[in-house]
Write a protein that binds this DNA or RNA. Sequence first.
DNA 1: AATGTCCTCAACCGCATGGGA
DNA 2: TTCCCATGCGGTTGAGGACAT
Length: 234
Amino acid sequence: MVKSTSRASTTGTSTTKKTWLKKGSWSPEEDQKLIAYINRYGIWNWAVTSKAAGLLRCGKSCRLRWMNYLRPGIKHGNFSQEEDETIINLHQQLGNRWSTIASRLPGRTDNEIKNHWHTHLKKHNFLQGNQAADHQENQSGDQIYNNQTIEENNGSSGSTYEELQNLWDPESFPMEGLYMVDDFGATYADPGFLVSSFSQWGFQENTYTSFASCYDVNDGLWDYLLMEANEETV
DNA sequence: AATGTCCTCAACCGCATGGGA
DNA sequence: TTCCCATGCGGTTGAGGACAT
């Protein structure tokens, strides 16, 4: 993307001390100066490189321009599906360690990956259900499911198996178009599976505890089910 | 065609880190 | 050990293009 140099008006510590420094977008002439200098002399000190190349830029700006745009081998353009998957997987493992992620994607820079994540992959990853916990945090209430709530039994105990089964009653809430994500990130196409599993896994009535979220593709809203329990275990 | 809003991404900033004096 | 400087990193900004009204 070609931009004007209007960012040059941006204030900053470097401009207050070195007003001769140019800021903002790089012109093709500046790019050529930097490329020509580095091709001839190499890189050994960015501050010196900037001056020696005849650029009115700070060394930091020269480094960024070279590393993110001018350096040979830099890929420009759309990310492949394979690259997207790699970024998503690495981000799950590493978090926002963009430079580390970039080192695993030849030709891609940390800045480019970071931008791509925030503009494309973040939303995609969100909709894949990997952010169930985030949804939970964003909810003000935690016992909401299709405007229903689970009443506590006898004050301290949680919902009964029957109550949960009733909650998923297909008559009142068809399962088509629904899937669930449990608090471990596992996805269930059939919400009833999660409910019945608690019984199959050996939890007794009133003893299971879990949070589950449910995405309704019909209305595009996330619904939540909190399965509370008392302290007794099997 | 004009205007407003949203989206993308290059470039900036501040802070952290590492190496040399 | 401390200080200074260059480099690296991640968060943020805002210009300009794309799209909607």
